[in-house]
């Protein structure tokens, strides 16, 4: 079982934060197939958050095929994210390290590197949508 928390400075809406925290836990192996997510009522109470927000997050996870709701029993993890991404992470991390070294050589400081990454990330994400 995992415990959720909300970060008011994350820039993400509460429901997106819940989705992200479940995905993160799946990626890190904190949640495994068959694990039960906390009930909507428990999350609503513990976090003082709108139950509709929790429902919306669980529905999105269900739509992504990560969890399944069993009426009257609870919401259960049906798939993990750990295996398929972990394998791919090694080479990508290596590439990123190489790129970071290049960026520092070019004279960029941490802040500039972060700004460049975020703006490029956002603009490619925008292209995918459009």
């Amino acid at each position: 079982m995992i415990e959720f928390h909300l970060n008011s400075r994350s820039g993400l809406s509460p429901y997106q934060q819940l989705v992200q925290q479940v995905r993160h836990a799946l990626r890190l192996g904190l949640l495994r197939e068959g694990d039960r997510l906390p009930t909507v009522k428990d999350v609503a109470r513990q976090m003082a958050v709108n139950p509709n927000t929790v429902l919306k997050a669980y529905r999105e996870l269900e739509h992504d095929g990560l969890v399944a709701a069993r009426p009257g029993v609870g919401t259960f993890v049906t798939r993990t994210l750990a295996d398929d991404t972990l394998a791919a992470q090694g080479p990508l991390r290596k590439d990123l390290r190489r790129w970071l070294a290049k960026a520092r050589l070019a004279g960029l400081d941490d802040e500039s590197i972060e700004a460049l990454f975020v703006s490029t990330f956002r603009s490619t994400a925008g292209e995918d949508v459009a």
Partner: peptide
């Protein structure tokens, strides 16, 4: 209040000037 919303089919209208509370609840 949120537990009550989860338990009963209850609509809520609440006024507040704390937007952070509104965003959460």
């Amino acid at each position: 209040l949120m537990e009550a919303v989860a338990e009963h089919e209850l609509s809520i209208v609440l006024s507040s000037h704390l937007v952070s509370d509104v965003e959460r609840t």
